[in-house]
Design a protein around this nucleic acid. Structure first.
Lengths: 142, 142
DNA sequence: ACTCCTATACTTAGTAA
DNA sequence: ATTACTAAGTATAGGAG
């Protein structure tokens, strides 16, 4: 693309990598928006920035501006683990939770209406007293 | 684009809308992959198809093929609530759970190391006996 | 739904500031 | 990090099958 064709592998120079990320991030969000508007559907994007020092700046960029974002349920970038405001974290959580709710409903359908957390053998119960203080999903691996 | 420039509003003809969705879905996934590979990061996409009758077909398309997907943590399309296999649902859940875990960690950092579910005033506790059978995130709204 | 086609529209790598 | 530029690569609407 551009002047030269880029090889599809990790960009080793960190400055170039961050620049490329920044440019392509903007277009993919734009594309997601177009898809959502044109097709009247919801699109969610979760991205993890390769470069944590640009976090705050990028988080501000990810805010909705102009006609962008309208139909994007949520767009988080860059590193979720470095979110700096409770509001940001809450909004992200809320989306993830509703996505989970939808998945649980479909899973219950497939399984004949049973709840899944008690039956899902891939997710172990915490060895606690059964209280909810440490929720089940803590132990999921990435 | 293409022969004619498309107005950025909902495509009213449902056949065209589905066709556009199908085409643009493929490119946005490709873009997400490129971003993930080039920048060595994780990108997640969640899409909801405008047309549920094409669900199964689209779900099969969303499977990883060739060099695509490598760095995409998860890509679910179309309607999550209609996922037909427990495997699909489990994989999606696992990603969402790990994303949540990361968010909880950052939130705990911001809040000084406290857990968030007990303190998050936006999320009400279920009015149950405190057991985990109905998990807290059930009540999140989309 | 999918392909294949093509002209047009859009994206983008590299560069400079 | 940002903008602006531009040449070259990519995406896509509309059409046909």
């Amino acid at each position: 693309m551009g002047r030269n064709k880029l090889l599809m592998k990790k960009i080793e120079d960190s400055t170039s990598r961050q620049q490329t990320y920044s440019k392509r991030k903007d277009s993919i969000v734009k594309k997601a928006n177009e898809l959502a508007v044109l097709c009247d559907t919801d699109v969610a994007l979760l991205m993890f920035s390769p470069n944590s020092q640009h976090l705050t700046q990028s988080l501000e960029q990810s805010k909705c501006e102009g006609e962008m974002v309208e139909k994007i349920a949520i767009y988080y970038e860059p590193q979720v683990e470095n979110i700096m405001s409770v509001q940001e974290a809450s909004a992200c959580q809320q989306f993830l939770m509703s996505a989970m709710e939808q998945i649980q409903l479909s899973k219950a359908k497939v399984w004949g209406g049973e709840g899944f957390l008690q039956r899902n053998e891939n997710i172990e119960e915490p060895a606690g007293d059964g209280s909810c203080e440490e929720t089940n999903w803590i132990e999921a691996e990435h």
